[in-house]
């Protein structure tokens, strides 16, 4: 194989891999962002250094969030002071909490249990301790 041919083949293979990655993540991301119509809204507010939650029925919680197994939830995320990032690693819920903006993320837990909630954007002194827990319950509803 000639000098240039080898390089062109190499570049071609790289571009083919990139196209695959690009198309695949386009498809997956489309699915991820497709919020189910029946999702229940939970308002999430970050502030130095804890999370507070407000359910659709007006119930408020701080640091600990209770949800039902088998339901879909839409988080409306904002911040009262600096930037935070709302994160439930086990359910791949992750979106920045930006003051003056409302961002969205959704999930539908299908397993009961207790899962950590944390802040994933540096927000000062106690950023490391801005933790909470998600409790997924099964009421048979």
């Amino acid at each position: 194989m000639g000098h240039d041919t080898a390089e062109w083949v190499f570049v071609g293979v790289v571009i083919a891999i990139l196209c695959y990655v690009g198309v695949d993540s386009w498809i997956v991301q489309k699915e991820v962002e497709d919020v189910p119509a029946n999702a229940e809204v939970i308002k999430v507010t970050g502030q130095q250094w804890y999370w507070s939650f407000e359910h659709a029925d007006g119930t408020k919680e701080v640091s600990t969030l209770h949800v039902q197994k088998g339901h879909a939830y839409l988080f409306e995320i904002t911040s009262r002071d600096v930037m935070h990032s709302f994160n439930i690693p086990d359910w791949v819920v992750f979106e920045d909490a930006v003051p003056g903006h409302t961002n969205h993320a959704w999930f539908a837990p299908d397993q009961v249990g207790t899962y950590p909630i944390q802040c994933r954007e540096y927000c000062g002194l106690l950023h490391y301790n801005m933790r909470g827990s998600l409790i997924v319950e099964d009421n048979g509803t």
Partner: peptide, 16 residues
């Protein structure tokens, strides 16, 4: 880096 730039994976890796 290729994995990072794929949007869905970024939500797992970003900020970690």
């Amino acid at each position: 880096g290729v994995l990072n730039s794929a949007m869905p994976l970024d939500f797992i890796t970003h900020g970690t």
